[in-house]
Design a protein around this nucleic acid. Structure first.
Lengths: 336, 336
DNA sequence: TTGAAAGCGCTAACAT
DNA sequence: ATGTTAGCGCTTTCAA
């Protein structure tokens, strides 16, 4: 019955008589009628759903990913969209899996921290709006990237540490080859340059993105530098790395921040719970913002008019103080 | 061209000639053809997607919810399903929103910790398979519930604490009216009964499910009991509550666990990071399991044969030791 | 104000 | 081996 249009026709429409509408509505309730979402999607060519693409969240949920997702979900709710999660085993699957997701099941895609060897240009489908969060390089022409000013946040934090009097700041950064890890290190260096301080030699270590990685890197560094001066402060590439470092330091009887200050990066729920000093990335907001931008892209594609906004959105990252950062100790301490 | 069935027909099928198939495949690649998911869903009456229903994850992501979700997503990946997140503003929206989700956009629904006044029977659509996690009561006839043995876990943990010699164990539980909070308290009580120990009077407090709630409850309790004996141990209803309590205790100069032991509940990422003693709920596994059960339900509904499995799946909750639990102090301490 | 037809993109069944 | 038809459930357009 085409007259079923009574259900979604606006109140004032003359399409159906009041009497018929009431009859239809009554019958619908009687039959517990639910319009079928797929049929709707088929005719409307829209699903009111957005996709969130990420690599497998391991058994230990990744707090970084979770906080962005949380922002995405909230943004989606605000935009009256549902969120579909697509999980890749790894970014190598992207060239086969991502095009497969552009099959009308979502109106647009948010891709979290894609890491791809070559440019996506060749295999990326053109007509599915796409926003990346923390993409490395410009992986997607036509898409928009949302990120935070990691270099600036790192710079400002290290600047403050230097201003507090710290001179030997050990940087335990993320793995080589991650642009984000490099940007944080860049900020560390620039702050030193601007302050006219030369970082002590060999005061940079690399760790994988986890507490375990932090533990290993810290342990190894201390082994290598036995008998030398203990750094006054530690600038970690991630909260998780900071946690791992802190465990190793505490196990050696060192007090934080009295003997050594420790600073994290991201300011995820872990850092907040521990009241850790850390550079805050507005992860939640980034997720939220990514949805807003994506919806603009979607609207633009629908209307046929081009998207006018910026192709790169940079949110500020700023230092948050906490209980793990203090003035440097007065007496020198050696690595034991 | 109906012969497009070449694309999904099995290799050995005689439906199309090899030559035609190749031609079709070539053309498909040429046109970057993607079969439309909605049209497929319409004919197949299946979407290969499952829904995850939860109330709004606040600005502070709820670790409990996140860990279950993580398990769900992983279970979904294993079952070749995608996960759609539906967020409710509150459970009062459930009677209107949940039926609206049963419109064919997902093959089944996983509902996290639904709290509903009346039985869902009246408004729940019949023919969408549904699995709840930690449902209060049997909210959904025909559905399956997955939960953990909270009472048993609490019992076992408190039993061990009593065996360690603790006699004055303060319980800072979750809010009144939450069945889960009550079950944990029940385990606390039963352990005392079995050990022949009478819990000291007024050693039960209630807090909202957050660190803030723990802080407030702890502060208030200490105020009320100034000058009395400080409990030797604290059994919290949640990890977050435990964190809040620990902060208040530490702020008063008390050492954990030397002066007072603290035990959490859930053993979420917070507890793991802090190496906190806590009753472990297998949240990840529960999410994973919920998907498995849901898929059985879905299969059964498809095949027409009834679902044979249990309507309630109970996973064990067991105590995990940690750095916050030790033997009771020898000297008495007063609340200051 | 209502009815009838066509089409969204796909697949299953039947006919050639 | 291939072409045709019908239908999944909905909306839009055109006819009555």
């Amino acid at each position: 019955m085409a007259a079923s249009a009574a259900l979604n026709g606006s109140q004032g429409s003359t399409r159906v008589s009041v009497e018929t509408r009431e009859r239809v509505i009554a019958a619908a309730k009687e039959l517990r009628y639910r319009p079928n979402a797929n049929a709707r999607a088929l005719t409307y060519r829209r699903t009111d759903a957005i996709g969130f693409v990420t690599t497998l969240m391991g058994h230990q949920p990744n707090t970084y990913c979770m906080e962005v997702l949380d922002g995405v979900v909230q943004g989606a709710v605000a935009a009256h969209q549902s969120t579909v999660i697509f999980t890749l085993g790894g970014w190598d699957e992207a060239p086969t899996r991502i095009p497969a997701l552009c099959d009308g099941r979502v109106d647009g895609l948010i891709v979290l921290a894609p890491r791809l060897e070559d440019d996506g240009q060749t295999w990326l489908p053109e007509h599915t709006p796409m926003v990346s969060v923390h993409a490395s390089g410009d992986w997607c022409t036509g898409g928009v990237n949302v990120e935070s000013d990691e270099e600036g946040g790192a710079y400002e934090m290290v600047r403050r540490m230097l201003a507090l009097g710290h001179r030997r700041i050990l940087h335990v950064g993320g793995p080589l080859g991650y642009p984000g890890a490099d940007r944080r290190f860049d900020g560390y260096l620039r702050a030193h340059v601007d302050a006219g301080v030369t970082p002590p030699p060999n005061h940079v270590a690399r760790a994988s993105f986890s507490a375990e990685g932090g533990r290993e890197a810290m342990e190894a560094w201390l082994q290598r530098h036995r008998g030398e001066l203990l750094p006054e402060a530690l600038f970690a590439g991630t909260d998780d790395i900071a946690v791992g470092c802190m465990e190793v330091l505490a196990a050696r009887g060192l007090n934080i921040p009295r003997d050594i200050s420790v600073v994290g990066f991201d300011h995820t729920v872990i850092a907040r719970t521990l009241h850790m000093a850390a550079v805050r990335q507005p992860l939640h907001e980034m997720g939220h913002r990514a949805v807003e931008v994506l919806m603009q892209l979607v609207m633009a594609a629908r209307g046929g008019d081009p998207y006018a906004g910026p192709s790169n959105v940079v949110l500020p990252a700023e230092p948050r103080l906490g209980r793990t950062l203090a003035e440097p100790r007065r007496e020198p301490l050696l690595v034991v």
